[in-house]
Design a protein around this nucleic acid. Structure first.
Length: 815
RNA sequence: GGGCGAGUGGCGGAAUUGGUAUACGCGUACGGCUUAGAACCGUAUUCCUUACGGAUUGAGGGUUCGAGUCCCUCCUCGCCCACCA
């Protein structure tokens, strides 16, 4: 008997499978399609890491199961390879990022093969390949053409450490309230800079509505809805001296309660107002002070501050409100939400209440508050008071009535506001897609070519990244591409001098549409053939990371919806179903990190225990969505399982005995039901139960082969080895691979037990067991239960007042 | 402060969706094999109790013949967002 040698088995099959690309997914197959996608990796470091193996193993098992169940399964992989790791490596070593990327990708690909992931390698894509980013640029020009890409001066987040601007989504708040970069967790600051934005705000409503069409977990839907932050209300015109200002409110029903106005310190109108104020100096000093303070100091829980603009008052839009409304500059008013001006209603808004208390401002209740809110702030609805002719009305009704009156008097309208801001789409770094536009001398922006026909005065896509003397970023907001003057200086179609855009696209650009490219990865005429898209899209199951909920997942939905509106893609949503995967922690139960020395390298595990044992261990841990600490004894257990299975091949006989037969059909039934529900952990436990049961039994060749097929999605290498052996194949042929075989079926009749033992309860407590025939009548079963000796003891001579029999399950006797 | 989710042995986790709670695995204990072993095999393992028996799914209440599962109140933990007018 040869002993289980995982390396020998795995090295052999991975090359054969790869050479014949056995997981190929043909376009337009007769079989029903399934598009199973796991977020493609951002290759950095040596090879695939622990997070990847968590993310890809369960989807791979599922994809393999579907393939064996008659589906044409697309399970593709590619490389999201623009970004900082390759660029930083280039800065350090001078090696061109493209070369470095090529090298890292090779290692990654090898580790994917080692893990046994069933990938159709003919569809491999790489976002840094000019043939790929040609279409990323093309989509950008479509945005530009549609007016959804814009170059404008705006407040942005600048990260000095990364020396680039970042989008809103890429900026996080740490525990102390500091704003930091998502990548690297470096401090970020506000700056005004001219940048490219994609107007995701125009799609805010569509992105919310589209969630009704897809099967995402509620948590993901809610996170996106909250991020988009839609608020309904009204915009209202107030007059401040001679200026008419517009404020947004979600509570037009509280209009009669306005007792002050507050303006953001960054508000552009402020300059003019300051000049009219009596305390000009004081205000200027305050504004300067606020602007010098970091965002940290303007955070929540910090006291709100402000300064009144003395001598300046606002006029209420309703003429029956005649009081003069004082105007403040206040740090709690945000410039980038609404209009940067707030109407202060201290009686019914907590922030306004805090502010009014601090500065002794008038507080007028306009909605009758329940008794327990007496003397404090009340934000609920109720009956109108102190509101002129509207007293006694329900605030819900006045909400609409107030808007009607504003509209009638030309003082406002119903309005909607969003928290989401436009997507800052340019970065001052080298290793990204060049933005394919030029800037003319008169300040105009022109595409380098027309996206419709690629005819262009200047050139064609792709606009490739030029060579530069060095890749270092700068602190002044210019891009390394500026250093190539020959490339930057260009003429427009009329021969006038112009300059190229030197910013590059953010990391997220390439991943916005990669799932589309997989459907037609080699197309040179269009980003993908519409018929192929119609066949494959949408993605049926999309597995990824929770950290992408309000970034990649939202961005790519935005691009897809735009492309759908342009008639370029056939479905309104890209992903029909989504699940976020959990993490693998170090053995100490904390997040893996090099500094803590608790990093588990998948390739080391593959070396020591084999990919089959590793895959099975991952599947066995628990549900996909959860996070687990690494358990070095757990991998030993699944390695032992592999070894036991391998040795079982010596135990095959012509026919199975009854125990094996029953165990086998139960196994097939249970595993077949569990995989579609992604319950891989219990499926593995079923395999363990089967192996435990059949020890020292004869296993017939038919059941043995069936078992190998059940094993195949979990331990593809061992399954192939055993399959080839069980069938006596001596030469490899693609069509004889176990992975292209049909999933086994089971016979309910064999599983079914005619004689069963069921528990008997007395007053809901288990007191004994009886053995019955499955078809016994209720009367017969109850009689048997009552008659049984142990139960008699508990009945103490009484006959049950009530009896319950759940067929084939349980008896309950109530006395 | 808002949103989402979760609390089951020493640990990771099961539970046919209202029907024998703790499957499977780890760990532990004892035994076997062995010169020896962190290797392998066997047995046990929710807790209390020598036993009979009793208790038990974060706490308390409710519905039900029967609740980990459904309803109410509370507690704890995790994740995401957060001065968004």
């Amino acid at each position: 008997m040869t002993s289980y040698n995982h390396s020998k088995i795995e090295d052999k099959w991975k090359e054969k499978w790869f050479a014949d690309n056995i997981y190929e997914a043909p376009d337009f197959s007769e079989k029903p399609k399934k598009y199973i996608l796991a977020e493609f990796p951002y290759p950095s470091g040596k090879a695939l890491h622990a997070g990847h193996m968590m993310r890809y193993t369960v989807p791979d098992i599922y994809a393999r199961f579907l393939r064996m169940n008659g589906y044409n399964v697309l399970f593709p992989m590619g490389w999201d390879a623009f970004g900082l790791p390759a660029e930083n490596y280039a800065i350090k070593t001078g090696v061109h990022p493209a070369e470095r990327t090529k090298e890292v990708v090779q290692h990654y690909k090898e580790s994917f093969k080692k893990m046994g992931y069933g990938i159709d390698w003919t569809r491999e894509i790489n976002t840094t390949d000019p043939n790929y980013y040609k279409w990323t640029q093309w989509i950008f020009l479509k945005f530009l053409e549609a007016g959804l890409a814009e170059y404008k001066e705006m407040p942005i987040w600048w990260c000095e450490e990364l020396k680039t601007v970042l989008s809103d989504e890429e900026v996080l708040t740490d525990k102390e309230g500091n704003k930091i970069s998502e990548r690297g967790e470096y401090p970020v600051e506000r700056k005004m800079l001219k940048q490219w934005v994609l107007k995701i705000t125009e799609y805010a409503d569509k992105l919310i509505e589209g969630l009704d069409l897809v099967d995402f977990p509620e948590a993901i839907k809610q996170a996106q809805i909250n991020w988009i932050g839609r608020s309904e209300g009204a915009s209202v015109d107030f007059k401040i001296n001679e200026n008419t200002v517009n404020v947004f409110t979600t509570r037009p029903d509280t209009l009669y309660g306005v007792t002050f106005m507050a303006i953001a310190p960054e508000h552009p109108m402020l300059d003019e107002l300051i000049n009219q104020a009596e305390n000009k100096k004081e205000i200027l000093a305050y504004v300067k002070d606020v602007k010098s303070r970091s965002d940290l100091e303007r955070q929540i829980k910090k006291e709100k501050t402000g300064v009144q603009l003395k001598g300046i008052f606002a006029k209420h839009p309703f003429e029956d409100v005649t009081r003069k409304i004082p105007v403040f500059v206040a740090d709690y008013v945000l410039m980038d939400y609404g209009s940067g001006i707030v109407m202060g209603v201290p009686a019914h808004d907590e922030r306004d209440y805090d502010f009014a208390n601090k500065y002794n401002l008038e507080i007028i209740s306009v909605i009758k508050a329940p008794a327990e809110f007496e003397g404090t702030v009340y934000t609920g609805m109720g009956e109108m008071i102190n509101s002129g002719d509207y007293n006694g009305m329900k605030s819900i009704e006045f909400f609409e009535a107030a808007i009607d009156r504003l509209v009638k008097e030309g003082k406002g309208k119903k309005d909607v506001n969003f928290k989401i801001r436009d997507w800052i789409f340019s970065r001052q770094r080298y290793w990204g897609e060049p933005i394919p536009v030029i800037h003319t001398e008169d300040g105009k922006v022109k595409p380098v070519c027309n996206p419709e026909d690629f005819e262009c005065v200047n050139e064609k896509l792709p606009l490739e990244l030029p060579e530069v003397p060095d890749y270092n970023p700068t602190s002044d907001g210019t891009s390394p591409l500026e250093r190539n003057a020959e490339w930057v200086n260009i003429t427009d179609e009329n021969g006038n001098p112009a300059k190229r855009e030197t910013n590059t696209m953010p990391n997220w650009a390439g991943s916005c549409w990669y799932y589309i490219r997989y459907t037609d990865p080699h197309n040179n005429e269009s980003f993908a053939d519409i018929e192929k898209m119609k066949y494959w899209l949408p993605v049926d199951k999309y597995f990824g990371g929770a950290e992408h909920t309000t970034m990649h997942l939202l961005y790519s939905r935005f691009w897809h919806k735009f492309l759908y509106d342009q008639g370029e893609v056939p479905t309104p949503e890209p992903y029909q179903w989504r699940m976020n995967g959990g993490l693998l922690l170090g053995p100490d139960g904390t997040k893996m990190s090099k500094s803590k020395g608790n990093v588990i390298e998948p390739m080391d595990i593959v070396e020591n225990y084999g990919a089959d044992a590793l895959r099975t261990f991952i599947a066995f841990l628990g549900p996909y969505t959860d996070t687990y600490p690494w358990n070095s004894n757990g991998i030993k257990a699944t390695w032992r399982l592999m070894k036991n299975i391998y040795e079982l091949k010596e135990q095959t006989a012509e026919k199975s005995d009854e125990t094996v037969l029953k165990a086998y059909h139960t196994l097939v039934k249970n595993v077949s039901n569990m995989i579609p529900d992604l319950k891989m952990n219990t499926a593995v436990s079923e395999i363990m139960i089967f192996i435990n049961t059949i020890k020292n039994h004869s296993v017939g060749i038919d059941e043995w082969k069936g078992f190998i097929k059940i094993l195949a999605p979990f331990a593809p290498f061992l399954a192939e080895e055993l399959w080839q052996d069980a069938n006596g194949y001596t030469k490899w042929k693609k069509e004889n691979s176990v992975h292209l075989q049909t999933w086994p079926t089971y016979d309910e009749k064999i599983i079914r037990e005619d004689t069963i033992t069921i528990p008997v309860q007395v007053n809901g407590k288990v007191r004994g067991e009886i053995t019955i025939h499955i078809d016994d009548t209720e009367k017969a079963v109850i009689a048997k239960a009552v008659a049984s000796e142990r139960i008699q003891d508990f009945l103490q001579g009484h006959s049950p007042k009530k009896t319950v029999y759940v067929k084939g399950r349980i008896v309950n006797l109530v006395v």
